[in-house]
Nucleic acid binder design. Structure first.
Length: 423
DNA sequence: TCTGGGGTCCTCAAACTC
DNA sequence: TCTGGAGTTTGAGGACCC
């Protein structure tokens, strides 16, 4: 999903880069499910087949999470505000996201990948890289493996996927975008630059709206333009890392391997209020719920965080963050909340607030961390309370344990209701 | 047009350490 | 003892991705 609409054209899907192109030297597959969330909804409600279906965009400030190809014909795409999507396609079926269903479908698709190779690197629920170099004797060339995977996903899951086959991750990803929907594109290793150079700069990974505008001001419009610009000029325009990065990609150089296990760098939760608020009690209650959700997720995956970050977005969409690094890492709701709230109190914005968020960074495995209570703080008691609450929730459901301060109140204010508070 | 929620990575400045 | 410089850590912000 995402940017698929912006880099079409110029590629001959049936010929040079079609499903039967020469796949010598290609070992990387990028598999991307087509309109995944919308397709899962259509699969369980066949009466929606052929209709514009939009997942997300249902609340007053919601945005589109996924749109079926019928909805995309009206210009609807992901990340578009729901109100705009409704104007463009008023007869579309709008559905709230059901992440449990999408996760289940994702697990089924990923298990097909794991039947093929252990070298699977998921990027999100609906896409993954696969290294199929070791499959040749058992299953055939990369192109043949791609066809097999597409067929199994269709037969066993009733869903369609697009697959890109190339020598590198980055080119495989571009190829799958070109193949959409329900297609297969193979970029022969020897023809990588012919594939790459006509594409717009925005096709490059890491080039978003801002960077594309900077490059446009330099007169750089295509990947070929970037390739033929001195890397020093790119570095001075974009910064060292980004300048070198786009220059390397423009020559098809991408040394990253397919790496199966990714380590979490941060875990957090945030919520946007239906209406901007300045009521301290609502903010505090919401912050407690977000801290609880964050700490519960840390405990579930066995991690602790050393740095607590809060994010505050004001009514005018300005966003600030504040962070504090603790003396020892934590997964205790109370400690996450106390730190987050202290950061908020120090900020004391005095403006109406649109969004707040809590995040834990500098993560490490709970087993490796020395979890020491702060001076004077009964942390052990809080940790035990968290564990008991986790156990109760596991047994009786997420609503089984709720801090008193999160029980329904009669005042108005925000409508945020993040799940899994902690205490 | 009016912008979600989950993240990663990079840059820069200031503080700190050696 | 003071000082400067280099390297590291922390904090904040921004761009980007799905």
């Amino acid at each position: 999903m995402g940017r698929s609409q912006l880099q079409r054209g110029g590629v001959d899907r049936g010929g040079r880069f079609g499903p039967d192109a020469d796949d010598t030297g290609c070992a990387v597959l990028h598999v991307d499910m087509d309109a995944f969330f919308a397709s899962v909804e259509v699969r369980r409600r066949p009466e929606l087949r052929g209709k514009p279906v939009i997942v997300g965009g249902v609340g007053p400030r919601g945005v589109v999470s996924a749109a079926s190809y019928q909805a995309r014909e009206y210009g609807v795409h992901s990340a578009m505000p729901g109100a705009r999507a409704r104007r463009l396609c008023p007869h579309a079926v709008f559905l709230p996201p059901d992440f449990a269903a999408y996760s289940e479908a994702s697990r089924a698709v990923m298990s097909i990948f794991h039947d093929v190779t252990p070298l699977v690197e998921p990027l999100s629920l609906d896409e993954a890289f696969l290294d199929v170099a070791g499959c040749r004797r058992r299953l055939g060339s990369a192109g043949q493996v791609a066809k097999l995977i597409r067929r199994r996903i269709a037969d066993e899951q009733g869903l369609t996927a697009s697959v890109g086959v190339a020598a590198t991750k980055f080119v495989a990803k571009l190829a799958s975008t070109q193949a959409k929907p329900d297609g297969l594109a193979v970029v022969p290793a020897a023809e990588t630059l012919d594939f790459l150079h006509p594409l717009p700069v925005s096709a490059l990974w890491g080039v978003g709206e801002r960077t594309a505008e900077t490059l446009r001001r330099l007169g750089l419009r295509t990947v070929a333009d970037i390739a033929h610009t001195p890397v020093t000029s790119l570095r001075s325009a974009l910064g060292n890392a980004a300048g070198s990065h786009v220059h390397e990609l423009s020559w098809g150089r991408d040394p990253r391997r397919v790496t199966p296990e990714a380590v979490d760098k941060s875990i957090g939760a945030e919520t946007t209020f239906d209406v901007d608020i300045d009521d301290s009690a609502t903010l505090r209650t919401t912050m407690l719920a977000l801290a609880g959700k964050t700490a519960a997720r840390l405990r579930r995956v066995g991690l602790v965080g050393r740095t607590v970050v809060i994010k505050v977005r004001f009514a005018d969409f300005r966003t600030v963050t504040r962070s504090r690094t603790l003396a020892s890492p934590t997964d205790v709701t109370r400690e996450v909340f106390d730190t987050a709230w202290a950061l908020y109190e120090a900020l004391r914005p005095g403006e109406r607030i649109r969004l707040i968020g809590v995040r834990a960074e500098n993560l490490l495995p709970a087993g490796q961390a020395s979890l020491q209570p702060q001076l004077g703080a009964p942390e052990q008691g809080w940790r035990e309370a968290d564990r008991a609450a986790d156990a109760a929730r596991a047994r009786f459901g997420s609503a089984a344990v709720t801090p008193a301060s999160l029980l329904p109140q009669t005042d108005g204010g925000g409508s945020a209701a993040p799940g899994e508070p902690g205490d």
